[in-house]
Design a protein around this nucleic acid. Structure first.
Lengths: 209, 209
DNA sequence: GTCATCATGTAAGCCGTTACATGATTGC
DNA sequence: GCAATCATGTAACGGCTTACATGATGAC
């Protein structure tokens, strides 16, 4: 799961570990608590697998390119209040800037599609990076998830009907089922939207116009 | 988490490992995939900790009491198609029947309250066994969870406002936030209900009337 | 000069998984 | 006798966490 997140972030530009973690916390609430103890080993694993490359950037670097592209719009708001005290985010110390490789891109699309998204967190993560998939792969992701949820809805509903459950347990089961149902209709909307916009717009870029 | 589930199930009667797993799958959709590889070690851990006691029951046992109460309704549907072929679940081979101890009950209430329920699965599990808590402990559980969710709602909402997100990522964030909101109003209902029924009814028993 | 932040890592451990090993009983 | 179900366990491993260790830089 971490691998998907890392590769997904690196698809959009090179980043160093600390920054990856910051984005994980800010952007994906899903992986809010990811720790360095799992992040750095994951980066090394991916590097050894040839999925990413690292460049050591020293304090006064050749400045080939800004290490963190920052996507133009820095999305003011929250980011600012943290960076307020120092006016410029100048380079602080040597860091390792990671860049995705072709192998990494291959691995990424493989991970994005492989093994039907078990839990909602994994699926949420995948969907969050779905712009990097082809339209058909994206549709497949959504439909596989939907099928999975329909199964789970049956289980949840019949579990909720169990007479032997007391108020509290039944409430949990019913709430569970409701949530799954809600998820399904959300997916239906997403799927409908996919079919409406077959290949017309590239809805992914926000700053290329 | 497994420990809570085991102790919670044993609060209602003695069971053997295989049956515990069956119930985990059927009743709590939450722990549907728990495997023997984690269940049996967990049982031994709890036994060593003095939280549960084991009795070896042989094929033709003293029959002190039916080892698996089975709660009457087997919640038909899915369970049946598996158990169809043999008419009666008579004792098959020697099993270890586990019974909760006083220490186990103490541990159970401790686990039920300790560490504010991080994720929804842990909370769902706790709430499913909430009938074993005192009314005030139950209320505390609900209110701590609610407070936690309110925090998360703030994070989720501000994450969803992030301009730099594309359609898919934003959809995930918004859906996330909606779900948290839905959870909160569910909790509000549960809390209101707790306050309405201070100690009047014991809503827990289903088969004593 | 001290604290907060930025930055990278290692070690130990928890909690769960899959795969493997064993064996009794029942139905066909 | 063979397969399925019931029943209990061990071994190896995976992924993530916490705690620990290190060190540079900027703000006050």
């Amino acid at each position: 799961m971490l691998d998907i997140a890392i590769l997904g972030l690196l698809e959009e530009g090179e980043l160093h570990g600390y920054e990856i973690r910051r984005r994980l916390r800010a952007q994906l609430g899903i992986l809010a608590n990811v720790s360095f103890g799992s992040l750095y080993p994951a980066l090394n694993r991916l590097k050894n697998a040839g999925a990413i490359e690292a460049t050591e950037v020293r304090s006064s670097p050749p400045r080939e390119r800004p290490p963190a592209p920052l996507t133009g719009s820095i999305s003011g708001e929250r980011a600012v209040f943290k960076a307020r005290r120092r006016s410029l985010p100048k380079e602080r110390r040597s860091r390792k800037v990671y860049r995705i490789t072709d192998e990494g891109r291959r691995l990424f699309t493989e991970l994005m599609q492989g093994g039907d998204s078990e839990d909602s967190r994994t699926f949420g993560l995948r969907l969050a990076f779905a712009r990097h998939l082809t339209p058909s792969a994206r549709l497949g992701l959504l439909e596989r998830r939907r099928a999975r949820l329909v199964e789970r809805l049956n289980d949840a509903r019949s579990a909720a009907r169990d007479d032997s459950l007391d108020t509290y347990a039944r409430s949990v089961m019913e709430h569970n089922a409701d949530e799954v149902e809600h998820d399904i209709s959300w997916l239906d909307q997403l799927i409908a939207n996919e079919r409406l916009v077959p290949a017309t717009a590239t809805p992914t870029r926000h700053d290329d116009g």
